[in-house]
Design a protein around this nucleic acid. Structure first.
Lengths: 202, 202
DNA sequence: GTCTATAATCCGATAGAC
DNA sequence: GTCTATCGGATTATAGAC
């Protein structure tokens, strides 16, 4: 989310507000906060967006396009499906580790209780990625219901980051658990062989 | 979170506010909202709690004790560790399916950026459960670093619920994916054998 | 496109009566 | 323990000048 260069004011508002919404959520950020971050007055925001809700919606869409777009290409293409799934996990993990704010934004979005907003987000940003991942998972595990597998893969990658803030205060914590390479390795091991076969690194 | 009977006003405030915080988050709920739900004036809340932050903290602790307390017993005890882990997954899944609000509350808590609140929550509610689960995972997968495994198990169970709201709008959705029994079966299969070995149900 | 100024409402929290 | 009444400030959003 640290994108310091913008082509116009509208995009600058989107980029900076996405970062704010990611850290404090929709209700935790005021139009004043956003205006101050951009360096304008609150009134200026209403020239570009009809209201706070629309601004937030556009900001989320902007962030998803920016961060998830590059990952889509990895899922298509040819080659050994296990290798492609593995490289997706590695890249996805790396992106999440780098873009902490974006990871938080996903978590906020999933808590949204507005059906219409969820619908448009599903259509605009989740569906393509989801379909590609579903197809790939179908290749490595034919004959299964793909849906639970896709959710499991995404969850296995995301959850270490989602729980990072509280893991730090729990016994047994090691800095290594935050290393994206270690996380990816663990997830791949678990996908291939289950708990008993995941990579052994005491 | 639908606990319609309370022994005193303080507990009634805790139970009802936990439900409100779960649906709209800390910043999305006002003291006026809570007071209205309880059926008192906002001023009355300040007799029981010093401020909004403390009320929320106590409400989260109350909800965790109420919902997670019964699960702790499953983790200790003797018997085949795989069986105990499996029964924990089944019960945990069942609880999450039943207590949608509580599942949301966990997600809100993990987004909290206040270090002190996270610290006290880790101490008061997460640590015991985490330790017990870590010990159990150590029995089924000796020689591994337990931490990533524990996170993976919890993530595999929780993530289908966390993504439920958006899954409904994605292709391939089936009502069956929300069935706690199917989720638990899938998680157990994945823990035992990885993606290729998880239960086959097309 | 951005500003100043402001309307109308909502917020957390407190004082003091009962 | 709970109420009424209210303070001081923050909130979203708009009107109109430049």
């Amino acid at each position: 989310m640290a994108k310091p260069v913008f082509t116009n004011t509208r995009e600058e508002i989107l980029g900076l507000s996405a970062s704010l919404f990611a850290t404090r959520g929709f209700d935790g950020v005021s139009m004043r906060d956003i205006a101050a971050a951009v360096g304008v007055t609150p009134a200026a925001l209403y020239y570009h967006f009809s209201d706070k809700t629309q601004l937030c919606l556009d900001a989320v869409g902007y962030a998803f396009e920016e961060k998830m777009g590059p990952l889509k290409a990895l899922l298509d293409g040819a080659g050994n499906p296990w290798d492609r799934l593995e490289s997706f996990v590695v890249q996805f993990t790396r992106m999440l580790a780098k873009e902490e704010n974006f990871r938080r934004l996903i978590q906020w979005v999933l808590l949204d209780s507005d059906e219409q907003r969820l619908q448009s987000l599903a259509d605009q940003v989740f569906r393509d990625l989801f379909n590609a991942l579903r197809h790939l998972v179908g290749e490595v595990a034919p004959g299964h219901d793909h849906q639970p597998h896709v959710i499991s893969v995404i969850g296995l990658v995301i959850y270490p980051f989602e729980t990072r803030s509280v893991q730090r205060f729990l016994p047994g914590y090691q800095q290594q658990h935050e290393d994206p390479k270690a996380i990816a390795r663990h997830v791949v091991g678990l996908m291939r062989n289950g708990l008993g076969g995941a990579n052994k690194e005491k």
